[in-house]
Each structure stands twice: as C-alpha cells, then as structure tokens.
C-alpha cells in the first residue's frame, strides 16, 4: 500500500499527488513513469513521474481525470492509499546519460502542452540542478488550465507561457511560439515536446522544417509496462517498438503519429468517447493548429 502524502488540485480536473513509494523514489530518473492501481480490482494507470524526493521517499504524480478510473482517483484524500504503485518504468531521458560538459554546450527547448507540463518539469529541474538553463514553452487552452507555472519558472532559463484563447501570457498554440522564438533569432540544438499526441505531431512537423531534432514522450495504451503484452507498440522509423520498455521517449521525427493516435482510440467506447470529447476539449491546449 502506498500512502498519499499530499494532494492539490492544480486546475479544473487536474490533480497533483505526492505518494510514498520508497523504491521508486530511490531509483527514478526524469523521463520515467509509474503504473498505479487504486484498489484491489482497479485499472492499471500509467502516469509520468513529475517529481521525486529521495529522502522522504515521495513520488509526485499529476493526472487529469479522463475516464472512470482517473475520476475515482481524484476522490482519494491525503492519508488514503494506492493499492499498487510500480516503477520506475521505461527509460530515463537520454540527456541524463549524456556527458555533462557536452550537454552544457547544447541549447535545449522544452515544449509542454496541458498536463504535459508535469513530465517536462522533472527534466527541466534536473538540468537546472546540473547547471543547465533550458528554455520552456508551456501551452494551455486557457488561463485556468495552466499548471506548474511557478515551479517551472524557478527552474527554466526562459519561460514562455501561451494560451490558445489569449487569456494569459502569449496568445496562440505552442507551435506559434516556436515559430516566433526562432524568428527572433533563437537557436536550439534539441527540442523536447510532451503533451497530447496531436500536439506532439504538429510540433514535430514544424521542427522537421527547422531541422531541429525533437524528442517526444508517447503515451499509448499499456497493460503491464514491462514489455510483456505488446499493447503499447508504436512504429518508430518503420520499426515496431514497445513504448513501455524502449521508450516512452522517442525521436519525434521518426514516430508514426497517425498510427499511434489510432491505436490510442482502441478502447474508446461510446461512453469513453463522450467523456473524452468533453474533457479533451480542455486539454487540447496546444499547438496543432488544426483543431
């Protein structure tokens, strides 16, 4: 059993929780994820690790209510327990293993859409702690849905906030901000984009034009998260990969996003669809320019 040490509603239907999970907190790295189960017959839900504290054994998750399971999860209180909390799963972000000196020569741009700010945060924080200032674009549909702004500000080099409806920060999709920054003469060596599939797809289409290498974090449907079921398979550079063990981060320019999005919709029942339509409306904060 894994105790909830802290709970916070970051925005409508977006929650942050600190969960006591010593083994995970001890060994996790930016880019990795966990799978949680609320109760003895709960669904296995993959969530990216948003932060961790090796001393207290706390792991921070941020989730958005999407379907039945995440809705029930939102009702958990401080002092309640998750039945299961397994991880860290997946590979750490590539830069964690890179030589620090050569990493310092690189100019990195992070692009976060909606809840994507949660997985982006530990990466920017890690870089900050290692003396590297990265630029960060955070996009959300509207001001009320913006999350982790203060936290991000504390660790980012430059932070550019944008809202689709112009209610806060810049106005427009994250792709527009990328265009603006590059037009202003900014140069980047690597871009990391995390958010809804559709946002990542359009960021990648754009950065391809700029020949800016881009890493994305994929969130396909998963079951075990250890390479056992193949539910999470995605096509990258024409090869089939299991996102849970080979990823979740991949070269965005090689990802077959259309297939990945199609596969993500596999279990969208009519009801699920309705819930998603209702709420993904809210998270379609960013960047695709098409919807």
């Amino acid at each position: 059993m894994y105790k909830i040490m802290k709970k916070q509603e970051l925005a409508a239907n977006i929650y942050l929780m600190d969960v006591e999970a010593k083994r995970v907190a001890k060994s996790c790295q930016p880019g990795q994820f966990v799978i949680v189960r609320m109760d003895a017959d709960g669904e296995r839900i993959p969530l990216t690790i948003c932060d961790y504290n090796r001393e207290t054994g706390a792991v921070t998750i941020v989730f958005q209510t999407v379907g039945a399971a995440t809705k029930m999860m939102a009702d958990l209180k401080v002092g309640d327990y998750f039945h299961d909390f397994v991880g860290p799963l997946g590979c750490a972000s590539e830069f964690v293993k890179e030589d620090l000196e050569s990493l310092k020569q690189k100019k990195m741009l992070f692009v976060a859409g909606g809840v994507g700010a949660a997985p982006v945060y530990p990466q920017v924080k890690w870089l900050h702690e290692h003396g590297i200032q990265a630029d960060v674009i955070v996009g959300s549909k509207t001001k009320d849905l913006l999350i982790l702004e203060k936290e991000m500000e504390a660790v980012a080099g430059n932070l550019y906030v944008t809202t689709d409806d112009g209610s806060y920060g810049r106005s427009g999709m994250v792709t527009q901000v990328i265009k603006d920054l590059i037009a202003e003469g900014k140069k980047y060596d690597v871009c990391v984009a995390i958010g809804p599939m559709i946002m990542m797809k359009f960021v990648c289409l754009l950065t391809k034009e700029y020949e800016l290498p881009t890493i994305v974090s994929l969130n396909p449907i998963m079951v075990d998260g250890t390479g056992m079921c193949g539910a999470c398979r995605v096509t990258v550079g024409g090869k089939v990969k299991f996102a849970c063990v080979d990823g979740p981060e991949f070269d965005g320019h090689a990802v077959n996003f259309d297939e990945a999005m199609r596969r993500q919709s596999l279990y969208k029942t009519q009801e699920g669809k309705a819930i998603l339509a209702l709420e993904e409306g809210d998270t379609h904060h960013g960047g695709c320019g098409n919807c």
Partner: peptide
Amino acid sequence: NANGVFSANEYLTRSNLMKAFDEKSNTP
C-alpha cells in the same frame, strides 16, 4: 499494428489478471 491485433499475452492478461471477462471490470 492495426486496431484489433493483439498478442495472446495482452488478451489473456486483460481477461485473467484484470478480469475483463467480467462485465463489471473496469478493464476493457
């Protein structure tokens, strides 16, 4: 990779471990 192609492991895990055969289960 078409929708509707599964490994036996996924199919059986959903049914056995996650009890998806039971209509009441949350697992599809």
